[in-house]
Design a protein around this nucleic acid. Structure first.
Lengths: 233, 233
DNA sequence: CGTGACAAATAAGTCTGACTTTTTGTCTCC
DNA sequence: GGAGACAAAAAGTCAGACTTATTTGTCACG
């Protein structure tokens, strides 16, 4: 699933986007639409559409008479799902994974606390189901099934928080969790302590215990930070 | 500063973007490029570029033979600065402000903790300077100057955290702070307690006391939540 | 009846070429 | 050496013809 797929301009973005986010063009580099159109063998109209998209991601800036200049990394819209995917697929994947994990550690505990207050009965049920699914797949190298429930669990928490900004991070968390599992090449079974914590979070949310849900989730994210050697001395 | 300015397609987005984010077209509505091009009196190429941008924000989806369909709000990329501005300028400004303030309450304390560990001497100096500036403008209806230093303060903290995802939220926080001040129509002087907290955060960061910086910042954000009647019973 | 295949309609997608506008660099001229 | 005029360069815009995918309707066949 390369995501952009649709249309010729998407094809162009599939290779130009990763190149830029990988830092292949240093900030300030100028690209010319005509040259790019030639390189990708597409018409200028298609190329312009691609540039517009890159521009809306703050990756480049198009100015008359000068060309399409690459913006410094600090200006990129790093919350754009597309940009995140490109960077996760590129060279600074480790750094990106660390940034996102720190972001998780800030967001998810608060989201869990809110979920304990706002979750519907249905969401509570889903949460419990996910936690049980994690337990069921926690032993015997069934990491694929485990991951599936893990992702679903965190997605439900974020949605149940009732905050749209949190809810929108579901995809990001999914990427991080998937990335982590794949990076460890699916060798060991997950940490039993983490499994227990998820079950307890589901409990806390069901019981409306916001403080406990928050604290337990904080423990989960601390574990995620430790996995990446991001210490908190 | 309407931001998009550049180019004809930007002009189109300046009116079409707010319309969509305001929910004027219910999810699933179909727009036709030709009709839009006529309506805005631009060529189809320009209209297509605008649609591409909206598409990259996940506001719409363009499909052959059917047209440009508006996506449900839950799929919008609510972290896109442009989308945030459009929504802040529209009808659901209060809701947007609440979402963003909750986001702040999750992010900023963690960012402050990280800043206490990673801030450079220069950043510590900036922080102290900002805090002093806030003190200097805290009495006598100098809300404009106060806001300026407040925004700068939070921006420095987010950057000093060393996390690119946090750093990128500087603009969002600026919008929220500005929005809040303007909404209260600049009547009263700021809460003296908040001013003190900012000074203390600067201290804690300078001394490398992460836990204290985090806790103090949490108090600041709790204050922001209370202002909007977002309770935490 | 329902079901499957085929044909027509439709709207986005693509390409091309000509033209406009803005910016910038340079080259005078004072 | 600075100021203003001039020329070149690249993005921006437009119009029109053509392509392609997708939907929808129809019609025959089971």
């Amino acid at each position: 699933m390369s995501t952009t797929g649709r249309g010729l301009h998407g094809r162009v973005l599939d290779t130009l986007g990763p190149e830029i986010t990988a830092g292949e063009y240093p900030p300030g580099s100028v690209l010319r639409t005509d040259e790019l159109a030639q390189r990708f063998d597409v018409s200028r109209s298609v190329m312009r559409e691609a540039v517009r998209v890159l521009e809306s991601m703050y990756l480049v800036e198009s100015r008359r008479r000068v060309g399409v200049t690459v913006r410094p990394k600090s200006e990129w819209n790093v919350y754009d799902p597309q940009v995140i995917r490109w960077r996760l697929a590129g060279a600074d994947r480790p750094g990106q994974l660390r940034s996102l994990t720190v972001l998780r550690s800030a967001i998810e505990p608060v989201a869990a606390g809110l979920a304990a207050r706002h979750a519907t009965a249905e969401q509570c049920a889903e949460l419990t189901e996910c936690a049980l699914g994690m337990v069921a797949h926690s032993r015997g190298h069934k990491l694929e099934g485990y991951l599936h429930h893990d992702v679903a669990f965190h997605r439900v928490v974020l949605i149940a928080s009732g905050n749209e900004m949190f809810a929108r991070l579901g995809d990001v968390v999914a990427e991080v969790l998937t990335g982590r599992t794949q990076h460890d090449v699916m060798f060991e079974d997950p940490d039993p302590a983490a499994v227990t914590l998820h079950v307890q979070v589901a409990e806390a949310v069901r019981e409306g215990d916001a403080a406990r849900a928050e604290e337990l989730t904080r423990e989960i994210t601390v574990g995620a930070l430790q996995e990446l050697d991001i210490l908190a001395p």
